[in-house]
Design a protein around this nucleic acid. Structure first.
Lengths: 403, 403
DNA sequence: ATGTATATGTACATTTTTGGACATATATTG
DNA sequence: CAATATATGTCCAAAAATGTACATATACAT
């Protein structure tokens, strides 16, 4: 009898997948909205929702919506229904975290990273660290929902690996997803850090904007594209790679990529530091550049503004091509205040047609260290709860939780 | 009793919407595929499909797929289940057609167009001409499914109107969709011609390519973007407007838009004609330019190749930003043979990172006069049969057809 | 406090959908 | 030609979803 009960509930959970997907994707956050969005009858919605509430996957939040009558109870995924393991691989350090499904960071740590170690050894160290982090949360959040890695390089998202020659020698074409997949019974995601920061900005600050660009101006220059409300990756996952667009000029500087006159070689943090050093100022990194700007050094301010103009030049191309309604500028250089931004705005308004700039907003991102990490969590959650994959999630949930 | 039968069939038709959508969108073209795609039981699929077959909306095509057993009968929308009225407004002429749902052209005509007439008078003349065309097909294709207009200007698709100052003085912000909507009981669509040509290329020649660009090189220069398998329009419908991206150079020519050094002012048909005329050759239009190239005039060949390089320069920006897997080049200048194409390829391969160009194809479109018209039809059909709108289509179908 | 509006739960008869089981159609293979 | 594989139709009992009616919860307005 107990078994048949278990089976029954399992079956019901499987049926509740559509409801779960709607709630998780924020497509519907109340019973009434579920009714409208699902097209199912009230009875069915109630039943399936009750299954989800009973299973602890969904909860009624404290928030209610005024309605002129009994207030609407707002529904949401229960943050503690599971946990995620995410890691942001930088050029010198790896930042790791265990997160709930909100997603909030529950536990985090940082370990050193050396490219020389190679992918397998590095991934092994990440797994070891993940084990420690998981130990903190496994009791309270029982269920590993997904694993997600942020990479400082181009990533072919579909194939789950780093592509193209990049700062990570030896990682090119290493099948990260398969390697990690052998050790976890949860889906693995690998994505480029700029795309993840873009997802964070979109999901966190501008969820209702469908077409936007995030520009990361740090050591290098990169961007991420939200098109029709979703991250746009292109054929190889290389979309948004604006750092190596070239401009002709007599003094075109040599870029790290071997070409002349790339945006990055003109406006990247390393390029500004190079130019400052030439002028006798102490600067090696993007952080140094910002420090000099904060110290009101006129050379640094001038170069940051000029970098903004260069970025504005590509940004104006992006605006002409994509016609976004918002450009968010983040990365270390964006912490240098409005000098960068005003340079960007200047060029965009100068070079784009009024049609494209009429409703265009250009603004700085709020400084946020963990944005790639949180973006990596959103990536997992969006995929796992997507219409096509909720069923799979529910199957794993049912299999793993204690009966 | 007869009435209750009618109601019954009507109700069944409404239920068949999902099946219809799957067939119309080519997401499933056989009973087995419908089973898999819909998730419904075989019995239900059979029943609903029979309703659609009975109503004459869907048919078994003559084509079968080999299966190692009884061959799969391929299903498709019945072309004669309805008709479309489409018009392609050019700068001097309007090309109109009545089309079936394949979509094929059933009847067509061309009328003169003068901008001075203004939108209301022009639309009235289009409607008159549509009436004549509809007379030819109403008997055999009873049901007006949709009306679609191709415009030679930027269009805000969502708002259904021409936007921005353009060659169509007086049309800016005129609410075309509402105006026509008062006269037809069918949905009205208005879209930019380059986007429609892009849709045609995608749907007709490259349906399985998800990320591609169509560049129209004619009098002006424009482009359309397919991102994730769908046309991408941006916030105001101005995405793909590459003709007015500027390049700095000492000799930057003045553009029609008032800026200096736009792509169009360097490589558009009018710009090449201008340069040829300066060299003493007889040329006013893009067609003249191509004629001179076909006559092997070295000046014309040189300028066409240089135009290709200029277009290649923007194309390389587009590739860096969007990472498409295909660029198709069409428009009048594309009929000048490979000179334009080789210029484009040269610059793209020179300026883009290998990651983005590795799997990139760049090719000429097949010359096709009606591509905007057919694209306009695809636009209607894709929307009308989309998951969210099939139900509405079925309701109109049921209401209009004779009982 | 009372009335009204909206949100939400539940029992039950009715209608739909599903899962098999069984039957037939039409290829390919030997 | 027989054997086999896949495609497809249909009957029927079982399961699921729906519509309806009735009941309760909680806010706002008077």
């Amino acid at each position: 009898m107990a078994k048949s009960m278990g089976e029954k509930e399992q079956a019901s959970l499987a049926n509740a997948s559509e409801i779960l997907s709607l709630i998780a994707s924020s497509a519907a956050n109340s019973r009434a909205a579920l009714l409208a969005a699902s097209g199912m009858s009230r009875v069915t919605v109630t039943q399936r929702l009750n299954v989800l509430l009973g299973a602890g996957l969904v909860e009624e939040t404290l928030r209610t919506l005024p309605s002129g009558g009994r207030p609407t109870r707002v529904l949401g995924i229960k943050g503690s229904a599971g946990f995620l393991l995410v890691a942001d691989i930088g050029e010198t350090h790896i930042h790791l975290a265990a997160m709930n499904l909100v997603p909030d960071i529950l536990a985090q740590s940082t370990i050193a990273f050396s490219i020389a170690e190679g992918p397998a050894a590095t991934l092994q160290r990440i797994m070891d660290e993940f084990d420690k982090l998981a130990a903190h949360v496994r009791e309270s959040h029982g269920f590993l929902v997904g694993v997600s890695l942020s990479m400082p390089t181009p990533v072919d998202y579909k194939r789950g690996r780093v592509v193209g020659p990049s700062v990570l020698y030896g990682w090119d074409d290493f099948d990260i997803v398969s390697w990690l997949g052998r050790h976890y019974e949860a889906p693995i995601y690998v994505e480029n850090d700029v795309n993840l920061m873009t997802i964070y900005e979109h999901r966190h600050s501008f969820p209702h904007i469908d077409d936007m660009i995030f520009i990361k101006a740090g050591t290098g220059i990169g961007s991420g594209i939200i098109a029709g409300g979703k991250i746009f990756r292109g054929a190889q996952g290389a979309a948004g790679d604006i750092g190596h667009i070239q401009f002709n000029s007599p003094d075109a500087p040599l870029c790290r990529c071997g070409k002349l006159g790339c945006v990055e070689a003109r406006a990247g943090g390393w390029a500004i530091a190079r130019d400052l050093a030439e002028k006798g100022l102490q600067a090696e990194t993007a952080r140094d550049v910002v420090a000099l700007v904060e110290m009101q050094k006129p050379e640094a301010i001038m170069l940051l503004r000029r970098a903004g103009q260069t970025i504005g030049e590509v940004a104006s191309d992006v605006v002409s091509i994509l016609n976004p309604s918002l450009i968010v500028v983040g990365g270390m250089l964006a912490r240098g205040g409005d000098f960068l931004l005003s340079g960007i705005r200047e060029l965009v308004y100068q070079r784009c047609l009024p049609l494209a700039t009429g409703d265009l907003q250009i603004m700085l991102a709020e400084p946020k260290t963990d944005s790639a990490l949180i973006g990596a969590a959103h990536l997992v959650l969006d995929d796992v709860f997507s219409a096509g994959k909720v069923a799979e999630f529910l199957a794993r949930f049912t299999a793993k939780r204690p009966r």
